[in-house]
């Protein structure tokens, strides 16, 4: 039986879906403190695709790679709870301010360090930057083929895969060879829930940095159970060209940001009385909006 080595790219994002009035600070910047940090939704769809391949081909390994601040180690733990075998947190101030290109470069260099990979599986898009660019750019950085908007793996035999893609106005089935970068759509099956046994098993999985902050009680565990160590890579652990990293390695720059949350415009309040509705309709007819 065939086995595969799969890396899932997953990002921790602020939950931008339920944004209240306090989500933006007066200066127009995002108030991250009130937005919960979550596993990017489509990255969960990506993880599920990876776990399905693992179910079908026992011996396959699924690991996560996430780049972000220290607390993004939560992403690796979440993956472990759902059936992944491990993961790496890529974290360093040198990555701060990265645009999609600098992000892809850093992720690509980390992936190169991981040896031969059969699949890199990413979500289609992250809900904060909303660009859907990182998947294809990682593929280009690694010189790998990409298949975007995957909804279903229809068939996988040795090094040949058949995938169903969801396009703007239809669907497409494609066949190609591994290795491959694929990005998974939100319309793909949802991720399985946390497994209670795995939750118990990996509850104490931590990075070195987190461990240093913890009280002493559990430190012995990490010596007995190496699988509880979440590797933390900094810029010195991967080979990089500093000019391609972070803000200075990013061709795009944010010039300015404007807050648009619930900016009220002047609106007319209309009651449900017949006379109110009638005068509104007359106004719209007169202005040639309707009629």
């Amino acid at each position: 039986m065939e086995t595969y080595k799969i890396i899932v790219l997953a990002k921790q994002v602020p939950d931008t879906r339920n944004v209240g009035k306090d989500a933006m600070k007066a200066d127009g910047t995002v108030n991250r403190a009130v937005l919960p940090a979550i596993f990017n939704p489509e990255d969960l769809n990506a993880l599920e695709q990876a776990l399905r391949i693992k179910d079908q081909f026992p011996g396959t390994t699924v690991k996560l790679l996430t780049m972000g601040p220290g607390r993004a180690a939560e992403i690796i733990r979440e993956g472990l709870f759902r059936g992944a075998d491990g993961g790496v947190l890529l974290t360093d101030r040198a990555f701060a301010g990265s645009d999609t290109l600098a992000t892809s470069y850093a992720l690509g260099q980390a992936l190169k360090k991981m040896g031969k990979i059969d699949f890199v599986i990413a979500g289609r898009q992250a809900i904060d930057g909303d660009t859907a660019q990182v998947g294809p750019q990682v593929a280009e950085k690694l010189g790998m083929l990409q298949v975007t908007y995957v909804e279903e793996v229809k068939e996988l035999k040795k090094d040949t895969i058949v995938l169903k893609r969801r396009l703007d106005r239809g669907v497409e089935t494609v066949k190609c060879k591994l290795p491959l970068v694929m990005t998974v759509n939100g319309t793909a099956p949802e991720c399985r829930v946390r497994n209670a046994k795995l939750l118990m098993k990996y509850k104490w999985a931590k990075t070195v940095t987190e461990l240093q902050k913890e009280n002493e009680d559990y430190t012995h565990l990490y010596n007995d159970r190496p699988d509880l160590n979440i590797p933390e890579w900094t810029v010195t652990d991967i080979e990089t060209d500093a000019s391609q990293l972070g803000l200075s390695g990013s061709p795009t720059k944010v010039k300015s940001i404007e807050n648009v949350v619930l900016q009220a415009k002047d609106s007319k309040i209309i009651s449900d009385a017949d006379s109110d509705i009638e005068s509104m309709m007359i106004e719209l007819i007169k202005s040639h909006t309707i009629g």
Binding site: T131, P136, Q137, A139, T148, Y149
Partner: peptide, 23 residues
């Protein structure tokens, strides 16, 4: 910013090391 443009654009921009702004 279609299923084609969002597949092609990032790949091209990565190859040319030029920035790409989405949507």
């Amino acid at each position: 910013a279609s299923s084609i443009g969002r597949d092609l654009g990032p790949r091209v921009s990565s190859a040319l090391h030029s920035g790409l702004t989405a949507d």
